[in-house]
Simulated assay, not measured.
Amino acid sequence: MARRWTLRRQLTLLYAGPFLVSGALLLLVPLLGARETVPVPGQGQGPSPQAPDTVTAGNHLLGLSAVALAVMVLVSIVLGWVIAGRFLRPLRLIIDTARDISATNLHRRLGPTGRRDEFAELAGTLDDLFGRLEAAFAAQRRFVANASHELRTPLTAQRTLLQVALSDPDASSDGLRAAGREVLALGEAQARLIDSLLTLATGEQGIERPAPFDLAAVARRALDARSDAARARGITVTASLSPAPVPGDESLAESLVANLIDNAVKHNVDGGRVDVATDGSTLTIINTGPVVPHAELDRLFQPFQRLGAQRVRATGDGYGLGLAIVRAIAKAHGAELSATPRREGGLTVTVTFRP
Rank of each mutant, 00 (worst) to 15 (best):
R8N: 02
T12N: 04
V21M: 11
A24K: 07
L25K: 07
L27I: 11
A34P: 02
G42M: 02
Q45L: 13
P47Y: 14
S48T: 07
S48V: 04
P49T: 10
P52I: 04
P52E: 08
P52R: 09
V55W: 10
T56I: 14
N59M: 15
S65D: 14
V67R: 13
I77F: 15
V78R: 15
V78N: 13
G85D: 09
F87P: 00
P90H: 06
I94Q: 10
T104G: 05
R108N: 09
R108G: 00
D117E: 08
F119Q: 12
A120R: 08
L126Y: 07
D127N: 03
F130Q: 06
R141Y: 05
R141L: 06
F143G: 01
F143T: 03
A145T: 12
S148K: 11
L161Y: 04
S167A: 13
D174E: 15
R181F: 05
E188K: 11
A189E: 14
A191P: 05
L193I: 03
D195W: 06
D195E: 15
S196D: 15
G203P: 00
P210F: 01
P212Q: 09
P212C: 01
A216R: 00
D228F: 07
D228E: 15
A229C: 06
A230D: 08
I235G: 00
T238C: 04
A239D: 06
P243V: 10
P243T: 08
L252G: 03
A264W: 02
V265T: 09
H267V: 00
V274F: 01
T278Q: 07
P293K: 06
E296S: 12
L307C: 04
G308S: 07
R313Q: 13
R313A: 12
L321D: 05
G322K: 02
I329K: 00
A339E: 06
G346H: 01
T348G: 08
T348F: 03
T350A: 07
P355Q: 08
